[in-house]
């Protein structure tokens, strides 16, 4: 039971990270049905900028929390500029183009951003300064750190803020209007270019926060860290129903938990020694206390993708999604 609880906490933290990155994907998708494949790189830039600022201030004597906040508040505007630039350079000129054209420009921009980051921050693995002291708490036998708790809470707060922004503010109304029908929204006096640019900037700001989260939790930053994170978060967004804010949240948390439980339990579930009558030939080895698992934690990604595929086969537009893109 402790192990299960521990895996649940592990999964929730990982899932919260995915969720915040997924929010960035889903915001952009929600308004122009475009997957911003370069979003992972925005997260990376966020982590890198924060890394630089926090390293600079690490010995300044300021309270650690203040340093991290300063780092984050420097990362956010940089990422917003990057997000805006992405939209202007790579996506806006292609709004009427075939759907796969922006995919290629996104890949191109990813390569460019990665290698610019490589020039600025070197190709080394950067050790993110661990200035906030890690405290470990014991909750019913499971260990949880203060950073984990902050990540999960921050993730919930960000989603709440985003929901409020989309549903309760003037900006949100015009964003939703743009999403529903850009031409009519334009006729109604909504400056749709502005709305779309703002959406990109907000998505990028979320990416910056995610970058700082990842950096301070795992203690490492690298110029290619965005690729895998972006991919997983994209899966999370699709799992929850892309374009849907609570969907990204649900998808992210679920994906994290699935991965953790997968890593934790696939081995036990496929242990051939658990069914000795089926594999008599292995009896001797099993009796010696060995476990012969067909699959192990190495299949955690397979497990996660299988769940994803199963969900999509049953609900072709994700858990909370509604609309379906029609063409490739």
């Amino acid at each position: 039971m402790e192990t299960f609880l521990q895996q649940l906490f592990n999964g929730l933290t990982l899932g919260a990270v995915y969720a915040v990155v997924a929010l960035g994907y889903t915001m952009v998708y929600g308004i122009i049905q475009l997957i911003n494949f370069a979003h992972g790189e925005v997260v990376m830039i966020g982590a890198m900028v924060a890394f630089t600022i926090i390293t600079l201030l690490a010995n300044s004597g300021l309270p650690p929390v203040a340093i991290v906040l300063i780092g984050t508040s420097c990362a956010i505007p940089v990422c917003m500029i990057v997000g805006y630039a992405l939209e202007r350079i790579a996506y806006r000129p292609l709004r009427n183009a075939p759907r796969l054209a922006p995919l290629i420009t996104a890949i191109g921009m990813s390569i460019v951003l990665q290698h610019v980051a490589m020039m600025v921050w070197s190709r080394n693995n950067l050790a993110f300064p661990q200035i906030i002291k890690t405290e470990t708490y014991d909750i019913a036998g499971a260990s949880v750190t203060n950073i984990q708790i902050v990540i999960v809470i921050l993730c919930l707060v960000l989603m709440g803020g985003l929901l409020w922004l989309v549903h309760r503010t003037r900006l949100g109304i015009s964003m939703r209007a743009t999403a529903q029908n850009p031409r009519v929204a334009g006729l109604m006096g909504v400056n749709i270019n502005r709305e779309i640019a703002i959406t990109f900037a907000i998505g990028a700001a979320l990416g910056a926060v995610a970058g700082v989260m990842v950096g301070s939790y795992y203690g490492i930053a690298h110029y290619q860290m965005g690729a895998l994170l972006g991919l997983k978060a994209f899966c999370a967004a699709v799992l929850g129903g892309i374009g849907n804010v609570p969907g990204a949240m649900v998808g992210g948390l679920l994906l994290g938990v699935i991965e953790a439980l997968g890593a934790g339990y696939i081995g036990d579930l496929t242990d051939l020694c658990a069914v000795p009558w089926l594999f008599a030939g292995l009896a001797a080895r099993c009796a010696a206390g060995e476990h012969i698992s067909l699959f192990g934690s190495n299949y955690q990604d397979v497990f996660a993708f299988l769940v994803l595929i199963a969900v999509l086969v049953l609900r072709p537009s994700g858990l909370l999604g509604e609309r379906v893109g029609d063409r490739a």
């Binding site: 998708y29 997957i35 759907r99 991919l231 994209f234 899966c235 699709v238 892309i242 993708f305 299988l306 994803l308 595929i309 999509l312 072709p316 537009s317 994700g318 379906v324 893109g325 029609d326 063409r327 490739a328």
Partner: peptide, 11 residues
């Protein structure tokens, strides 16, 4: 369809 198909094939 579309992006959902993309993610399944990717998986």
């Amino acid at each position: 369809r579309g992006d959902y198909l993309a993610i399944v094939t990717l998986g």
